[in-house]
Computed example of a mutant assay.
Amino acid sequence: MNIILTVNGEARSVGAPETTSLLEVLRNHLGLMGTRYGCGLEQCGCCMVLVDEQPTYACTRELGTVAGRQVTTIEGLGMEARPHPLQQAFLDEQAGQCGYCLSGILISAKALLDRNPDPSRAEIVAALDKHLCRCGAHQRILRAVERAAATLRAQGTKGRRPA
C-alpha cells in the first residue's frame, strides 16, 4: 500500500506498511538522514520532526498517522548555501559539539520561534526540555536560539526563513 505525505514541501509516495515508523521511512525509504535515531522511546529528541508544524517524535510515530500531512525535517529547514537563521546562529555560537542531537533541537527551536518570536530564556528551556545533549553545549544552544530569535524578529519573519 502506498501512503502519500508531504515531506519538506514535496508530495512523496511511500510503499511501506502503515505501522512503519516515520523515522524509518524518512531515513530508509526517502534517504533523509538528518533525522537521527536515538532511543526509540521518545526520551532523547534526536528524531524530532514537524508534523503540521508541531514537534513530533518520528521514532514512534507510525506512517499511517501522517498520511496527507506536512512533515518537515532538518533538510527542509535550510540548505548549506542558505542556512536558516537558526542554523546560522548555532554555527555562530558554536552550539554543537558532536551534533547528533542538533537536528531535533533545531526542529523544536523552529516550532518555538514560529509560535513565539520573542521567547524568554525559560520558554526556550521548556521548549527544549525533551532533548538530551550529552556534550554539555546547553548554554551555547540557549544563546543560539536567542540569537536566531533576534535575527528573525529583525527580518520580520518569525521562525520562517526569509524569502
Rank of each mutant, 00 (worst) to 15 (best):
Q43V: 00
Q43W: 02
Q43E: 15
Q43K: 11
C44P: 00
G45F: 03
G45C: 08
G45H: 04
C46G: 04
C46V: 07
C46N: 07
C46L: 13
C47Q: 10
V49E: 02
V49G: 07
V49K: 01
L50Q: 15
V51E: 07
V51N: 06
V51K: 08
D52Y: 02
D52M: 08
E53A: 14
E53V: 00
P55E: 12
P55N: 11
P55Y: 09
P55W: 06
P55V: 11
T56Y: 03
T56D: 01
T56H: 01
T56M: 09
Y57T: 07
Y57N: 07
Y57C: 09
Y57F: 12
C59N: 06
C59W: 04
C59E: 02
T60C: 10
T60M: 14
R61D: 04
R61T: 15
E62T: 01
L63Y: 01
L63W: 03
L63K: 03
L63C: 08
G64P: 12
T65S: 15
V66H: 04
V66P: 02
A67R: 11
A67P: 03
A67N: 05
A67T: 01
R69T: 11
R69I: 06
Q70G: 10
Q70K: 14
V71G: 00
T72F: 01
T72R: 11
T73C: 05
T73N: 05
I74F: 14
L77T: 05
L77D: 02
L77G: 01
L77K: 02
L77R: 00
G78A: 06
G78L: 05
G78F: 00
G78V: 07
M79D: 15
M79F: 15
M79V: 15
M79S: 15
E80V: 09
E80W: 00
E80D: 07
A81N: 09
A81C: 00
A81W: 01
A81R: 10
A81L: 08
R82P: 01
R82H: 12
R82I: 00
P83C: 11
H84S: 14
P85W: 06
P85V: 09
P85M: 08
L86G: 04
L86A: 13
Q87E: 13
Q87G: 10
Q88N: 12
Q88S: 15
Q88M: 14
A89S: 12
F90L: 09
F90V: 13
F90I: 12
F90M: 12
L91T: 09
D92L: 12
D92S: 13
D92T: 10
D92W: 04
D92Q: 12
E93K: 10
E93M: 08
E93G: 01
Q94P: 04
Q94Y: 07
Q94F: 05
Q94S: 09
A95K: 03
A95N: 04
A95P: 05
G96D: 06
Q97N: 12
Q97W: 11
C98R: 13
G99I: 09
G99N: 12
G99P: 11
Y100P: 05
Y100D: 05
L102Y: 09
L102T: 12
L102N: 00
L102F: 11
S103T: 13
G104S: 07
G104T: 07
G104R: 03
I105P: 00
L106K: 02
L106F: 02
I107Q: 11
I107F: 05
I107T: 15
